[in-house]
């Protein structure tokens, strides 16, 4: 199992680490038992554009790198586009992820989706992402395992 240079770059120099104190939306996914936890905070302007984003992650190299990549991808995007960022897109931007690590990129995109819905709910608007499994404190990543392996074969 070998990480690409791009994964190692984002792991060694993660972009946008931290917490936005007066965030418009907050998303937290994963739990300590499964080993990966990600928290993402976003600022959104009146045109629904993500103007700032920061993350904190407890997890492996892939978890940190995918979190970092998601923050880079979504900054400057409309929330309607950002909510559609897929785990495949994140993995591709990182020049690929080893098969057993694909579930890490799910966590990163899930975190962003939860933050976007949090923003929408605070403004009395309809959520875009809906139910996110990994936001459940009893989230079981094993449920995703087969799925993750299929992705790598694409």
């Amino acid at each position: 199992m070998i990480y690409s240079d791009k994964v190692m770059d984002h792991f060694n120099n993660p972009r946008n680490v931290g917490v936005i104190e007066d965030a418009d939306g907050v998303g937290e996914v994963g739990n300590p038992t499964c080993g990966d936890i990600m928290k993402i905070t976003i600022k959104v302007d009146d045109n629904d554009t993500i103007t700032d984003v920061k993350f904190q992650t407890l997890g492996c190299g892939a978890a940190i790198a995918t979190s970092s990549m998601v923050t880079e991808l979504c900054k400057g995007m409309k929330i309607q586009d950002a909510v559609k960022i897929s785990k495949q897109e994140v993995a591709e931007e990182l020049d690929g992820l080893p098969a057993p690590k694909m579930h890490c990129s799910v966590l990163a995109t899930d975190g962003l989706k939860v933050a976007i819905d949090d923003y929408l709910k605070k403004h009395g608007r309809e959520p875009l992402a809906g139910e996110i499994k990994s936001a459940d404190p009893n989230f079981d990543p094993h449920a995703d395992e087969d799925d993750a392996h299929h992705d790598d074969e694409d």
Binding site: M8, F11, N12, G35, C60, G61, A62, A63, I64, K101
Partner: peptide
């Protein structure tokens, strides 16, 4: 902390260790 992150960062500095972390 997560073991693999520790292992990789130690490797950056030239130390080879092991972890029992899932990742």
């Amino acid at each position: 902390v997560e073991g693999e992150s520790m292992l990789l960062q130690l490797d950056n500095l030239g130390f080879a260790v092991s972890t029992g972390s899932a990742c």
